[in-house]
């Protein structure tokens, strides 16, 4: 009997731990992922040597699973999102994702000895849409705020916007996308993104 209750307790603890993990708070998630990535950048000899393939791998496996690219693309498209066919939407998400990976790997190359500050989350615990605030501090520079717009979907938090020093990625691309759509339609935008990702289109 005693053994059984011990097993039950163990099970309950395990179940609780799992549940807690599934409901990792958004700020805790940002902190964990940032520290993981910074840890890799600082210790991985390939990343240190500027190995692009390895840097992309780190981004693909560590960062990207925490982003909601469909939501990001839809937000950057604004009203035009609904005028795109499902096939066009798929291509847009794919191309936008590729573009952001390229941009991010460039940003990681610039990483020096910054320190990250994680701000306490100011939102009520039931909210499913929050902004997680972090700050990067470097000598001789004003601190740069990096905020993440995050939404809870099916129990996990995913980022749909990154706001660096007040510059929202999604807002920035809204101008870019709408001017491309204005001149060449949704297909024109897809083409512009594809060309950009292929290395052309300076």
């Amino acid at each position: 009997m005693k053994r059984l209750s011990k097993a039950v307790v163990a099970l309950m603890v395990a179940a609780f731990a799992l549940a807690a993990n599934a409901q990792e708070a958004p700020d805790a998630l940002v902190k964990r992922v940032t520290q993981e990535v910074v840890g890799i950048i600082k210790s991985d000899p390939k990343v240190q040597a500027g190995d692009q393939a390895r840097i992309r791998e780190v981004i693909e496996t560590k960062l990207l699973p925490n982003f909601d690219f469909e939501r990001m693309t839809a937000l950057a498209m604004g009203r035009n999102w609904r005028t795109a066919t499902p096939e066009q939407q798929k291509q847009l998400v794919e191309q936008f994702r590729t573009l952001l990976v390229r941009t991010y790997s460039g940003a990681l190359n610039q990483y020096r000895d910054q320190t990250f500050d994680f701000k306490p989350l100011r939102a009520d615990s039931n909210s499913s849409d929050v902004i997680v605030k972090t700050e990067v501090v470097r000598s001789g520079q004003a601190p740069v705020q990096i905020d993440y717009g995050m939404e809870r979907k099916d129990g996990t938090w995913k980022a749909y916007d990154v706001i660096v020093g007040g510059v929202s990625l999604v807002t920035n691309y809204r101008d870019e996308f709408s001017s491309q759509i204005q001149s060449g339609g949704v297909d024109g935008l897809i083409k512009a993104l594809t060309t950009k990702n292929a290395g052309g289109g300076k």
Partner: peptide, 23 residues
């Protein structure tokens, strides 16, 4: 970063600058 990220650099810089200053 702008080279990597922007489709149209002019628009990208303008939007970034105005967002940044307002912020």
């Amino acid at each position: 970063m702008i080279d990597k990220a922007a489709i149209d650099k002019y628009t990208f810089i303008r939007r970034s600058y105005l967002q940044r200053r307002n912020y």
